[in-house]
C-alpha cells in the first residue's frame, strides 16, 4: 500500500517521487511496484495502479483480435425471426437503421454512438497508441489519442447491449419462431476480448511508456 506524504518531510522529496490520488487528491509517495502488484489509495481505496508484465505485446494481440471481430459482430445477424413464413433479421447496424427510418433520429444516433462508433474508435485509439509505443514513432499523437480514448471510455456500452439482446430474445421467444445467428457469438467474443484488453492495458504503464519516462514500463 502507498504511504501518505506528510508535510514535515516534503521539501526533501522531489515531486517526481510523489503521486496523488486522482479521486481524493491525497499526496502519496510513489511506491515501487513489481509485476502483478496493485496499489490502492489508503484514504479512499481508489485503485491507483496495477503493474502488469508485457503490456504492449499482449494488448496488441488483443486489440487486433477485437478489430477482426468488429465487422462480423456488427453486421452478421444476431437473430432471425420467422412469423408465418416471413423472415426478418437483426444486426447491430439494422437496429440503428430501424430507429432512424422510424423517425427517431436522435435515439438512432445515441444507439449508433454507444454500440458501434465509440467501441470502434476506442479500439482504433488503443491500436494507434500501442503501435506508437512499439515502433517508437509519433509519441505526441499517441498522447493525444490516449487522452481521447479516456474520454470515450464511459460511452462504449457493449455489455449493456448484450443484456439488451437477451431481454429482446426473452420478449420475442413466445411470439414467433426465433433462431440465434452467428453475429451473436461474434458479438460476445468481441465483448470478452475488449474487457480482457481493458484489464491488460494498465493506464499508468501506458502513460509512462508514451512519455518515455520509463523505458522498461512495458517489459
Amino acid at each position: 500500500m502507498a504511504e501518505p506524504a506528510s508535510s514535515d518531510n516534503l521539501p526533501a522529496l522531489e515531486f517526481e517521487r510523489l503521486i496523488a490520488c486522482h479521486e481524493c487528491d491525497l499526496l502519496l509517495r510513489k511506491p515501487l511496484t513489481s509485476a502483478g502488484e496493485k496499489v490502492e489509495c489508503p484514504r479512499c481505496g481508489y485503485e491507483l495502479y496495477t503493474h502488469r508484465s508485457q503490456v504492449v505485446r499482449r494488448s496488441l494481440a488483443l486489440v487486433i483480435t477485437a478489430l477482426l471481430l468488429y465487422l462480423p459482430a456488427n453486421f452478421l445477424p444476431i437473430m432471425q425471426l420467422n412469423l408465418l413464413g416471413q423472415v426478418t433479421e437483426d444486426t447491430v447496424w439494422s437496429g440503428v437503421l430501424g430507429l432512424y427510418s422510424s423517425g427517431m433520429q436522435s435515439i438512432a444516433v445515441v444507439v449508433f454512438l454507444c454500440s458501434m462508433a465509440v467501441p470502434l474508435l476506442k479500439l482504433l485509439c488503443q491500436f494507434a497508441v500501442l503501435l506508437s509505443i512499439r515502433l517508437d514513432i509519433g509519441r505526441s499523437y499517441g498522447l493525444l489519442l490516449y487522452r481521447i480514448y479516456h474520454h470515450m471510455r464511459e460511452w462504449g456500452m457493449l455489455e449493456v447491449y448484450l443484456m439488451g439482446i437477451l431481454v429482446a430474445i426473452v420478449k420475442l421467444v413466445d411470439l414467433a419462431d426465433l433462431s440465434i445467428g452467428l453475429g451473436l457469438f461474434c458479438f460476445i467474443a468481441l465483448l470478452l476480448v475488449q474487457i480482457w484488453l481493458e484489464v491488460t492495458m494498465s493506464p499508468h504503464q501506458i502513460w509512462e511508456a508514451l512519455s518515455g519516462e520509463d523505458k522498461h514500463a512495458c517489459d
Binding site: I78, M79, L81, L83, L84, Q86, T88, E89, D90, T91, S94, G95, V96, L97, G98, L99, S102, M104, I107, A108, V110, V111, C114, S115, E154, M157, V160, Y161, M163, G164, I165, V167, A168, K171, L172, L175
Partner: peptide
C-alpha cells in the same frame, strides 16, 4: 449509470426485428 441504456437497446433490436409490415411491427 450506463446500465440504464438497456431499454433503449432493447427498443432498437425490437424495432429492427419485428418488422412484418401490417402483420406485426414495433414503432418507437
Amino acid at each position: 449509470g450506463r446500465w440504464s441504456m438497456l431499454d433503449i437497446f432493447v427498443i432498437a433490436i425490437l424495432v429492427a426485428v419485428v418488422n412484418f409490415g401490417s402483420l406485426a411491427s414495433i414503432v418507437p
